[in-house]
């Protein structure tokens, strides 16, 4: 599945300062745990939870704890799926589709 993922607000520093990544993820690749993932893998679907663990393994180059906490993103990171807060699409259970755009952005405090 072709996806575009983007990092901002400083998170790009965790992956060699590259902000935009065009990736190709096999839905089978994601780490599969819990009932929802069994169902999603049965339907050959990729959830954001799967994507997060894929990104952690394949894209993040350093300090993964600055990206994730447990199986979600760390506090202070907004996740946007096609320019909408992932809270609106089911958070970790959001099912991704071909050509989706996922943005991980750290909140800024400077001024």
């Amino acid at each position: 599945m072709q996806l575009t993922i983007e990092f901002g607000g400083g998170l790009e520093l965790l992956c060699d300062s590259v902000k935009i990544h065009n990736i190709n993820v096999d839905p089978q690749d994601g780490e599969k745990q819990g009932s929802i993932d069994i169902i999603s893998s049965f339907f050959n679907q990729l959830t954001l939870k799967n994507l997060l663990s894929w990104v952690r393994t394949n894209v993040i180059k350093e300090r993964p704890e600055m990206f994730m906490k447990g199986d979600s993103v760390r506090p202070g990171v907004l996740v946007l799926v096609n320019d909408a807060d992932w809270e609106l699409s089911g958070q970790l259970d959001t099912v991704l589709e071909e050509k989706d755009n996922v943005v991980f952005i750290s909140t800024l405090h400077g001024g």
């Binding site: 704890e65 600055m66 202070g76």
Partner: peptide, 15 residues
């Protein structure tokens, strides 16, 4: 609502 938990301190960069 957006950020119920504060980020870790080392995630807060300063100008």
């Amino acid at each position: 609502c957006l950020f119920p938990t504060p980020p870790p301190t080392n995630a807060c960069q300063r100008c």
